[in-house]
């Protein structure tokens, strides 16, 4: 006894006639999911920045000027063999000086420098940045002096530690915010739909008195809930798209230009924003239909 035509037209006309309630539900879904989506993008971008800073954490091992090629090669081989090492790059004195000149172009400092005071170095990237201290210690002997050929090891310990604790806090806070937003969304949508069903409880009662089965009564409401959720989330996506392509994308461009970060929601190669859009629409539809389903249980029992 599946009658899609009946249910479809029933949903549509009932929506037309209960326009105000439907409008409220759609607006609620649109606004809350828009905020959720907006936060999802923000959190993803922040996470991207953090990840990229994490992977940029380096260990610079400055070498003594008189280090022998053999010792240098030995060290390079040794460092490469450590499992913590994800990359090693040798920067010669000349390369270091070139870089310095680039960075300080036009500055008076260049005129005052005579010769090349910069040391050669190994720049090491780690696959787990939290191991940075451990790795650094390997360049010292038991007395705390640097091993032969090594002049200094630099990794900005306090900066690294702070970064990790900030990362953890931002991650937790963002997660909590999204969970809270989702909860608020569920409650708001659920209440709106429940109100619209409550307003029509007499109608439900009459339908049942003339012999409508529970499902016959429920289905138009479920359709309506789905339709409202779907329409609301589509509006949320459109709003997010407009905002994304005007404001957010500009912010991301600045991030890309200054920090060379690739994992961003809109500009990133992963096109995360599309998943956010799809997620919002699925969430909207599901929320609509589930809210209706739960709200109906009160009024369509027997």
């Amino acid at each position: 006894m599946l009658r899609p035509r009946y249910f479809f037209s029933e949903t549509f006309t009932s929506f037309k006639r209960n326009f105000l309630m439907g409008f409220t539900a759609i607006t609620t879904v649109a606004i809350t999911l828009f905020i959720v989506g907006f936060f999802a993008v923000l959190v993803f971008d922040i996470q991207g920045i953090i990840n990229s800073i994490k992977s940029q954490v380096e260990l610079a091992v400055y070498l003594e000027d008189n280090i022998s090629v053999e010792l240098r090669d030995y060290l390079e081989g040794e460092i490469s063999s450590w499992e913590e090492t994800s990359g090693i790059k040798y920067v010669s004195k000349e390369q270091a000086f070139e870089r310095f000149k680039e960075q300080n172009e036009g500055s008076d400092i260049l005129k005052e420098i005579q010769g090349n005071p910069l040391p050669a170095s190994f720049e090491i990237t780690l696959n787990d940045p939290e191991k940075v201290e451990l790795v650094a210690l390997r360049f010292m002997d038991k007395d705390g002096a640097y091993i032969g050929g090594v002049d200094d090891v630099v990794y900005g310990q306090s900066y690294v530690n702070k970064l990790f604790s900030i990362t953890a806090i931002i991650g937790t806070v963002a997660f909590l915010i999204i969970i809270l937003l989702l909860l608020a969304t569920v409650v708001l949508i659920f209440n709106t739909i429940r109100l619209s069903i409550y307003a029509r409880r007499k109608e439900i009662e009459v339908m049942k008195l003339v012999g409508a089965s529970n499902w016959f009564v429920r289905i138009p409401f479920l359709f309506e809930g789905f339709f409202e959720g779907f329409l609301g989330s589509t509006i949320a996506v459109v709003l997010l798209y407009i905002l994304g392509n005007s404001l957010l994308i500009r912010g991301e461009r600045v991030i890309v230009d200054t920090m060379r970060i690739k994992e961003l929601a809109i500009l990133g190669s992963g096109h995360i924003i599309i998943y956010v859009y799809i997620g919002i629409i699925i969430l909207g539809g599901l929320l609509g239909i589930i809210s209706s389903g739960i709200a109906l249980r009160r009024f369509v029992k027997a």
């Binding site: 049942k208 008195l209 003339v210 012999g211 409508a212 089965s213 529970n214 016959f216 029992k301 027997a302």
Partner: peptide, 10 residues
């Protein structure tokens, strides 16, 4: 049973 009531009413 509750589920049979619609049938009765029809």
């Amino acid at each position: 049973k509750n589920s049979r009531i619609p049938q009765l009413r029809r």
